[in-house]
Structure formats: structure tokens, C-alpha cells
Design a protein around this nucleic acid. Sequence first.
RNA 1: GCGGGCGUCGCCAAGUGGUUAAGGCAGCGGCUUGUGGCGCCGCCAUUCGGGGGUUCGAGUCCCCUCGCUCGCCCCA
Length: 417
Amino acid sequence: MASLQSLRGMVDLLPEHTPLWQQVEATARDHFRRAAVREIRTPLLEVTELFARGIGEATDVVGKEMYTFLDRGERSCTLRPEGTASVVRAAIQHGLLSQGPQRLWYGGPMFRYERPQAGRQRQFHQIGLELLGFADARSDVEAIAIAWDLLADLGVEGLALELNTLGSPDDRARYREQLVAWLEAHRDQLDPDSQARIHTNPLRVLDSKHPDTQALLAEAPSLADALSAESQERFAQVQAGLTALAIPFVRNPRLVRGLDYYSHTAFEITSSQLGAQATVCGGGRYDGLVQQLGGAATPAIGWALGMERLVLLLSQGAVAPPPGPDLYVVSRGTLAEAQALLLARHCRRAGLAVERDAGGAAFAKQFKRADRSGAPFAAVIGDAEAEAEMVLLKDLRGERPDERLTWEQLLQRLAAA
RNA sequence: GCGGGCGUCGCCAAGUGGUUAAGGCAGCGGCUUGUGGCGCCGCCAUUCGGGGGUUCGAGUCCCCUCGCUCGCCCCA
């Protein structure tokens, strides 16, 4: 085939699917508005170092999934693989944080060079929340609640909130040492992937899907035991807060998350109906990131929600057929066709959705197209109507007889319909 | 990066080595030159993702390649 195609993993969203996306976006916007969260938009392209430093060199995202290239100035640029690093960078760059805590949301395409599969594309879309400058456990609860309520309001069912704590950076460092030592001692019993991660990303080993490794891990030192009293108390507060809001959750001690910047609360909202890529929304606390990217030490929590996966869940229900226009204008004759364009504009200015037949076709054909457009009414202008500056209103769905009307009468009739 | 499945018209789809590649939907034209939804008639793939090979002969067999898809990995 000589014809051009979209790049692998880059998906077109066709007109029949955009209404559902628009509905999700509108609902999300409304939830953010009600939660006093403001939108921020950042570039799709950033210097590579932002992600290398922010997400972590050892992560899969940075190590093998980034769209990175040299621009004409020989700078290494990367198409953003996630949103948080960019938002934090922008907040630092523009001094947002010196104006107090920031409640921000963002949305848009992200890029990860992976093998596509169900619920996974190379260009995909996220909506995300970032609460910058909030340290309290209550902000963790609030962030999660915003995601939970949004999903519930959209009518997604069968979701599970999985919750874990990664502890403070100190807890994590201490635990990491214990874990590495233990993994080292059992190296030969681990699967190859896990062996490779012992030093680069030991916590990820805990989440290995390998059955043998998983069985072995039952003996490993647990993160929970390494937590300081403060971290434990903090985690208890988060759980109590969720319980107070009647948001059900499941503790998952193996939930680690792939990005380096997380600490304390980590969570995922999953659905069993998504196939292998079950996470709809994932996030957590990242108290160290702002500082790591050159800002003042600032606690923060956030999450990102995968639009494609969410839409996948939503479209498992019945999809409403796209609405047709309010009016379809049919015309024949030179004068009439000129008037049809004027009439269409007149009605559009009055707020109606109007489709005008390209004209030229046989009259019968035009009515056929009018019918298929889904419009409830057709406005007919022929030579006779054009001379008199009238239109014939035809009821395409009901039994009402044709009416000969002036343009203003037409608008009134349609407004009443 | 590694496995499995698949690739015939815009969509669905028959066809399993033998002359001209069914059919349905959509589209276009007509029956009906100012009136649609139903019906009827006609048109709509020199070609089976692409390239090689086997054969007298290939959409049908073999090889390579590209793409789609599901899974691993990872994550939204």
C-alpha cells in the first residue's frame, strides 16, 4: 500500500468518538472548577534533562520509553512522557510557589515509545492533578477524593482504589539498604529482570509478576516494618480520611509505582475490565521533586488519569448516536442556492446547528441526505420561495404538514420545537 | 526489546492451487427533472498489506518485510 498511515501507536480520534471525549473533558473541568483547581498548560517538548532528573534515570520510562531527539540547535529534546515534571518546572520557573500553594490540573497528550497493546498507545492522553505546597495527609485524601468522585460521576463502575505508603525518603533509603542486602543474598533465586534491578531500582523487584520471585519475596524484609512512627501515623491518617469520606480502598503493600519521585502515599485506581493495562488513574506524593528540580523544598501530591483507558471503560456501555443538526437546508435554482447560504448563516447566528446541502443534486437526493443527517426539519428554498423570500418548513420526523414561512417565522417555529 | 494471533473494496465478509475475486452495508446514478425514509435497476477490488520464490497456474503453498492485534515488560 502506497498510502500514508499514522505512525505506529499514534491514534486518530474520529468524529464518532469525539463527543464522548468532550463529555469526559467537560466533566473533569467541572470537577476541577468545583474543587478550586486551576488549569495549567505546558509545552509538549522539554529538555531531556527535565525528565531524566525528575523521573529518574533508572526508570523504564526514562531508560527506554522516551521520544528523544536533537533539535537544530543540537539540544536534546524529549516529548513529555508524563505531566508532573513539566508542571513542577513551570511552577518553579514562574515563581508560582512563592505565591503560596498551587492547586493545578493539566491535560493533553503524552508520549512513550512502547509496544502498543490494549489500553496502551505511544501517544496517549492524560488528565492530571497536582497539589503543590500541601504537606498534610488531608491533601492526600483530597487529591484521591477528587479523582474518585470524577470517576464516579462519569458512571464508571467496578473500580478499586489500591493504596500503599512508601514512607519518607529516610525510611525508603534505610529500607532500600536492607532490601538490597537481602536481594543480594538471594540473587541466584531471582528472575533475570529482578536481578538486573537489584541496584538500579530495588523497590520495583517487590512488584515483580514472576511467581517464583513473588514466593521468595514473602521472606524479604517488608517496607512496612521499616517505616518510622511518623510515617506510620501519616499513613493511618490518610486511611482514616478516606474512610471518613466513605471511599473504599484496598491496601496493597506491593504497590510501588515506577517513577522515582514518589514518597509516602502511593495509589492506583484500577478496573478489572481493562485487560492487562488495568490502571485508570495513578499517583502519589512527591515531596522531593520540586527541590530536585531546583525549587525550594515543597511538599506535593498528584495523580494522572489515562483518558484512553477511561473512555474504554465508558464506551463499554451504549454510545449515544451523534446528534444531527437542528435544520437541514435544501435548495434548487441559482437564486435559491444563494439564499440558502444566507438563510443558513441567519439561523446559525440565532444559535441553531444548520447543515446546508451542497446543492446541485436532484431534489429527491437532497431530501434523502436531509433525512440521513438526522435533522428534525428541512428548510426548502426553490424558485418560488426565493422570489417571495420565504421558506418551506418540512417536518422530517413527524406528520406535520409543510409550512410556508418567512425567515423570522421559521426561527420562531424552530425555537418552539 | 521478546512471544502468540491476524492482514481480500471506506466497513463487514465469502473464497483452503485452476478460466472473468461472491454477498451485505455505506457511497454514487436512475426509476421519481419540487420532496426523503420502503422497493427495484445500474455503477463501485485487472486485484487480495508489500516484495521475492515454488508451480503450466497462487488471494490460496514457502521465505522476507510492513502493519494491526493480544500478551510479556512497564505504566495512564
